[in-house]
Simulated scan of single mutants.
Amino acid sequence: MKVAVEVLKALREAEGFVSGEHLSSALGISRAAIWKHIRRLRQEGYEIEAQRAKGYRLKGSPKGFSPMEIVAALPEGTIWKGIHFFERVGSTNDIALQLARGGAPEGELVIADEQTKGRGRMGRRWHSPKGVNLYFSFILRPPLPPSHVPLITLMASLALAEAMEGVAEVRPQIKWPNDLLLGGKKVAGILTEADAQMDLVKFVIVGVGVNVNMRREEMPGELRSFSTSLLLERGEEVNRLTLLLAFLKDFDKWYRTFLRGEREEVLRKWEERSAVRGRRVEVVFLDEEIRGVAQGLDRDGALLVRTGEGEMRRVVAGDLKVKEW
């Protein structure tokens, strides 16, 4: 795929036709090999015009979520290393976990067009129909203690909110720790899973699910009252590849900021989008229930809740409900 991707990039960058001779010289392969990769691109759904004495011109791209399209558009100079694309999987997080345990590097991406066993926090099912939404996971290997892993969830939710605002012209709020909301309804979620030793993270898997172009009738009945999609909020479809690439760019920015030790900037930007600060909340974790008013986050990303008795409680995990909703 690598050479075919380079041919695709060259066709994209060209203004009009690009000769087979130029492609051959630029990529260091024969003109016969160029023709072979042109045929492969056509088989993938690319419309490529060929004319004698002019060469090749890219006229159109596949309508579907093509792996070739994703690889060719991956941002350069970022943490992103490679892609594993599947038409249908159980869970992208499960695939990414297997890859990480096998030694896959930081920045490996797993993307699927459909999930049959997609999941969210607390073991909840994530409805993942084909061809309409975004489902992807990626591997991180940050040199951090396990106590800092919750901040990665906050970074991912912040990057996704910024990407959605830039691409879809909406402004999501973030419900601690991992849900993105539009009009009080869930439009996206983050699932972070880590493998760590006592004092150092071995790897982190970040899973992302976004309801992009899902229509209300495609949602299970029990989800319709509290879930939405970008299509439902905007009234028009959003390009999934454009949204994915915007997220990859924004997450890379925030991840580098965080690794430089600038966590306060991440927390400040997250707080600007908080859907819970100043709201009455209830957090349930195992057999404990905490009720009070959400005050914001501490330096490690834990939620601070002031109870009715005036006690400030630090919440690191749990199922949160905003009482006014």
Rank of each mutant, 00 (worst) to 15 (best):
K249Q: 14
F258I: 11
A302K: 03
W270S: 04
L297M: 13
D113W: 13
T228G: 13
V208T: 09
A4C: 02
I95F: 07
G207D: 06
E114K: 10
L23C: 09
K2E: 10
I48W: 07
A4H: 02
L11D: 06
L154R: 12
D195R: 15
L160R: 09
W80H: 08
V283I: 13
R40K: 05
G296H: 11
L304A: 13
I139T: 00
V322Q: 08
E222Q: 03
Y56S: 01
L267S: 10
L304Q: 05
T228S: 14
P62G: 07
R125V: 12
L181V: 10
H22V: 10
V3W: 05
A161Y: 10
G166L: 11
K321A: 03
R39N: 06
V201Q: 04
D113F: 09
G310H: 10
D179S: 12
G45D: 05
K202H: 00
N239L: 03
T92W: 12
V18K: 00
R12W: 14
L303K: 11
I139G: 06
L99I: 15
L182H: 04
A161C: 10
V281Q: 01
G310M: 06
G184R: 08
A50F: 13
G166V: 09
I83V: 15
A246C: 05
S227H: 10
R306T: 12
D113I: 02
K202M: 00
G107Y: 03
T192C: 06
V5P: 01
R42A: 00
W126R: 07
P177T: 13
W325N: 07
M164I: 14
T153E: 00
A72C: 02
A163P: 07
R124E: 08
Q173W: 07
K54D: 00
K202G: 11
D252G: 13
A188N: 01
I205T: 07
E165Y: 13
L200S: 11
T228A: 11
W325M: 14
F136V: 09
G209H: 14
L11F: 03
P145C: 09
L286F: 10
I38S: 04
A294D: 03
K185T: 04
Q43I: 01
T153G: 15
L140R: 04
F285K: 03
F85Y: 15
S61K: 07
F65C: 01
E76N: 14
A302I: 04
V18R: 02
R119Q: 11
A26M: 13
K253L: 11
V276T: 14
F258S: 04
Q295I: 04
K249I: 10
K185I: 12
F226I: 07
L241W: 08
G55L: 05
